[in-house]
Amino acid sequence: MIKHPRWQRPLFKSLVFLYILPCAALLLPFVKAGVLSLLESSLELETIFWAAYLNTIILAVGNLLLQWLVNIPAGLALSKMLPQHIARKVLYLCLLLMFLPQQALILPQYLLLDRMHLLHHAGGVVLMSAFQPFLVLIFWFGSEQIHPSLFEAAICEGASTRQCFFRIYIPMLSPYILAGSLLSVAESWNMLEQPMTFLQTDSQLVLSTYFLQQIGADPSVTAIQALLSVFPLLLVFAFAVAKLHNPNSIVSSEENSFTL
C-alpha cells in the first residue's frame, strides 16, 4: 500500500474551495445592500419574471422526459443489441455532432418548425432538443459497464426480458441516468438560442431570454433574480452529488426488491 504525503489532502480541499469561491460573489449584493432591503425588493419582482421561471421549469421537464425516451433506448441498443460496427458508426456520429455549434442549424430548424406548425410553441423547442449526442454517449457508456453475467444469472433464475430491463438494467444504469439528467436540466435551464428564435412572444419568455431583456436594468434586482434562478439547479446538483457519491445506494434498494 503506497502512502501519500499528508499535505496532499488539504491542498486538494483548498483548491476545491478556491475553485468554487467565485460563486460566493452571487451573495455580494446582499452584503452590500443588506439582506432585508433586497428581500423586500424581491417581493416586488415583476410577474413576467415568475412567468419566465415557470416556463423554464416546464421546458426543462419536457426536455428531460423526451430526452429519456429518445436517448436511453439508444444507449441500450448500441451497447447490447446492435452489431459493433453499427454501434461504432453511430457513436462516431454522436461525437461529430458535439463539434457543431447549435446555432448553425437554427434557421433551417426554424423553417422546419414553421412547416410543422410548431413555431412559437414550447413543443417545438422540446422537439428540437430531443436528440442529445452527449446523452447517448453517457447512456451507452453506462450500459457497457453492466456485466452480461448479471443478466445470465437472472435468466437462469427464470427472469424475462421485461424483468431484466426494469429490475437490472434500469437500476444499474440509474447513476448514469442521474448524471445525464443533471446535465440535461442544466442545459435546458440555460437554453438561449432556441427559445430566443422559436419563442418570440413575451408570454413565452424563459429565464435566459428574460435576462437578455434585462441588460442595463437595475443591477440589484438582476442579482436577486440570478440568485433565485440558480436555486433549483443547486438542489438538483446537491441531490445528484449525494447519490452519485455512492451509486450502489441507488442500485441496492432496487436489487433488494428483485423477486421473480
Partner: peptide
C-alpha cells in the same frame, strides 16, 4: 471533486453576475 463541476451547471446569468 464533484464540486469542480458546480460552475458547469450555473446559468449564464449567474456566471455573468459573478
Amino acid at each position: 471533486s464533484a464540486l469542480f463541476f458546480l460552475p458547469a451547471v450555473l446559468p449564464a446569468v449567474c456566471v455573468v453576475e459573478i
